[in-house]
Write a protein that binds this DNA or RNA. Structure first.
Lengths: 216, 216
DNA sequence: CTTGAAATTGAATTGTCATTCAATTTAATA
DNA sequence: TATTAAATTGAATGACAATTCAATTTCAAG
């Protein structure tokens, strides 16, 4: 493998040279973390992909751990915040909650494709390196809010009594996050190259709306 | 960190000493791979957890790659095979397919808790190290079989016309695999410590059966 | 202009990892 | 019992990773 960019000269680069290396390092890092997992991605891999010297990472971020902290603050937290805000603003009818959540997730994921794999690996899988940093602050209020609203709707008789409101939250997240993360596998496998993000969202909404209805 | 077992003497151990190290290495390896990801797990971590010398791994399995191959052959393939067989034997009615699949998955996962995280990370996530080894041989026939049976049922009018049979397969897998892998997160978060594997399965079956029904 | 701060690099350091190898001990076979 | 095969280890090797540091270059402020 030959180096694709010529080795840069030492010293501070000229202004027009190639702007905002810091942002590019963060982009490359979150991409690699999402693709290969945080623990499996070395600093060297990041520097190679971003075409910078290893020492630059340490100049900007200190060490590995603080690089991860920075990504959480500057990239991941805002992305989750947007989804949480959309759901919080939704009306109380279960159909509306479902529709708003699915669409918000669909849009968020389109804007940030690194999100589903990263969440699967680093939050949900046991031993995930982001679990502690994200669950308490970000996931808990959204999930509990959904649970409480489903429970209230069920008490009013607008949700099938056989369903558990807590598990409904799990089902909802399963149906939105998982298909996106798994798309590279099922798309070719099920000959579903034509399925767009929107089609997926509408399928999910149709499925859930029907599932929630109480019988008769 | 002090060594928890005293360093073993060199040479072949006595028969009663501590049997079947090879099997124990495989157990430990699949557990660690499931918890931390394959790429993120070092041979040394495995040897430390299994209380054997690093060289023993190479004696039994050659190198890292062949250790993974061995795990696929001896542990993962049989586990998937059992689920595939159950589904293949199910009757053609969508309700039956769903019920058999969900229950088979639930039982398989109870017997092999390493399965969901490993599948999520190493098969479904982009860059997963098991994708190529598992998708073609194992996942494809099961997934396409399900799709075709759903499509036929839909043509006969027993499945809601708004649902896409291909995405139904995705939904089905999402609803079975994901909740198990994510359980360590949602259980405390949603105060669902009382939810058993069976309750989860029955919730999922109820949800899907209702969702499949054509309206009116 | 001069000077100091910012951005960037190559090289050095220290640790860990995968893999190999010879030595050692026990089991199985003849 | 003698001999060979199997199972296991400690130690050595070479690659690569994380981190530090001094040197270099450019920008910004005076």
């Amino acid at each position: 493998m030959t180096r694709s960019t010529p080795p840069r000269a030492r010293g501070r680069p000229g202004a027009a040279d190639d702007a905002d290396r810091r942002a590019r390092i963060l982009d490359v890092a979150i991409e690699l973390f999402s693709r290969h997992g945080i623990a499996a991605t070395s600093m060297s891999q990041i520097t190679r992909a971003a075409h910078v010297a290893p020492a630059l990472l340490h100049y900007y971020f200190g060490d590995r751990d603080r690089l991860v902290d920075t990504l959480v603050e500057e990239r991941i937290a805002p992305a989750i915040g947007a989804i949480g805000a959309a759901v919080a603003a939704a009306p109380d009818a279960p159909r509306d909650i479902v529709r708003v959540f699915v669409r918000a997730m669909s849009e968020g994921v389109t804007a940030h494709p690194w999100f589903p794999p990263l969440w699967l690996r680093e939050v949900l899988s046991e031993g995930g390196l982001l679990r502690d940093r994200l669950v308490g602050t970000f996931a808990t209020p959204v999930a509990r809010g959904l649970r409480d609203r489903f429970a209230r709707a069920q008490a009013e008789g607008v949700i099938d009594a056989r369903l558990d409101p807590r598990l409904l939250v799990v089902s909802l997240i399963s149906l939105t996050l998982f298909p996106h993360a798994a798309a590279p596998v099922w798309r070719p496998l099920l000959e579903a190259g034509d399925v767009t993000s929107t089609m997926l969202a509408e399928h999910t909404i149709a499925l859930l709306e029907r599932a929630l209805e109480p019988p008769r």
